[in-house]
């Protein structure tokens, strides 16, 4: 199921933020993080999962770029989803 087809708003927001960094690779990246580290499907993502998802996503993005600022900015945007500040 693509993020557009999903009725999970949080998942869609996570993908939207990730797209700023990973473009078309974002839905696959997010699905991998959720499946692999949270052990659930993207459809089942809830706000309580966010801290763990942010940590793992931050760590994984850190493997893809050496630009710490980009990684911090990405993690910050994801974390703010949980605070309802987006």
């Amino acid at each position: 199921m693509t993020p557009e087809e999903s009725n999970n708003e949080l998942y869609r927001q996570v993908v939207l933020i990730t797209e700023e960094y990973l473009g078309p690779a974002a839905p696959r990246f997010v699905a991998r993080q959720i499946n692999f580290h949270l052990g659930k499907s993207p459809q089942e993502l809830v706000t309580d999962d966010l801290p763990k998802l942010v940590e793992w996503s931050k760590l994984t993005l850190g493997l893809l770029t050496e630009d710490r600022q980009v990684v911090a900015q990405f993690a910050d945007k994801l974390a703010r989803l949980g605070e309802g500040q987006l």
Binding site: E19, E20, Y21, L22, G23, P24, A25, A26, L61, V70
Partner: peptide, 11 residues
């Protein structure tokens, strides 16, 4: 024009 800072760099 594609979205994605890291994706664009790789592309």
């Amino acid at each position: 024009q594609v979205k994605g800072l890291l994706y664009r760099q790789a592309l």
